[in-house]
């Protein structure tokens, strides 16, 4: 038995898709600036665009963080990370053919609230995204504005990685962060298709399994 539920607010959806759009602009301008894969996204000021959009991207992430804290903490709170990891472990075992993981999502129409709103691994995904966005922001802005304390810190650990100096390490870390971001994004995109939640991020509504505790 299923029931249609209003799942995502308009604010959350706009925030999400704005992050997607700005994220793509950042990825392509970044790859153009890094001379990667022959990408030619803009003819004009690629760096200026990259920096400006990155600031918007950062603001959107903090808006989303605010929303998560204010409205969705029950589902995305840090306290759920261990549960999320356990679920991920079970998913991984299932992926290798050991056991089966039941979709825990469900809605209680009597109480008009979710019993479980998300696939638990989304908790990790969200926080990894946020940490990576923060990491990209810090490394990128440290390079652009030459934030000396950060460059000095990077310089102090640069020899461990065989990097030339702090700036070089920051640049490599920023580049590597992009790949990690893309990796999480690929998994995220695949997951939303598999778990059938993509339409709800457009309409805000989804048919949920009725689950009474």
């Amino acid at each position: 038995m299923e029931v249609e539920v209003y799942r995502h607010s308009i604010f959350y959806r706009i925030c999400h898709w704005s992050i997607v759009v700005t994220g793509f602009i950042l990825a392509f301008t970044g790859m153009q600036m890094g001379g990667l894969y022959g990408i030619k996204f803009l003819e004009g000021q690629t760096l200026a665009t990259h920096i400006t959009v990155s600031l918007v991207f950062g603001c959107l992430w903090f808006l989303m963080l605010y929303y998560i804290i204010a409205r969705e903490w029950k589902w995305f709170g840090l306290g759920r990370i261990p549960y999320s990891i356990r679920f991920l472990t079970a998913e991984t075992k299932a992926w290798f053919g050991k056991g089966h993981v039941k979709d825990p999502r469900g809605y209680n129409p009597d109480r008009k609230e979710y019993v479980e709103k998300i696939i638990p691994t989304e908790v990790i995904v969200w926080w990894v995204y946020f940490v990576l966005a923060l990491f990209m922001g810090v490394t990128g802005l440290a390079m652009y504005y030459r934030i000396q304390p950060l460059i000095d810190f990077a310089a102090s650990i640069a020899p461990v990685f065989g990097a030339y100096d702090g700036y070089a390490l920051l640049r490599a870390a920023h580049l590597f962060g992009m790949y990690l971001f893309a990796m999480v994004m690929f998994m995220h995109v695949y997951a939303v298709i598999i778990f059938d939640v993509l339409p709800s991020m457009i309409t805000g509504r989804r048919r949920e399994r009725v689950l009474r505790e």
Partner: peptide, 12 residues
């Protein structure tokens, strides 16, 4: 510049 030759011979 962003090459990281120290990590198992592979860069970022």
């Amino acid at each position: 510049v962003s090459a990281l030759p120290g990590v198992l011979g592979a860069d970022a």
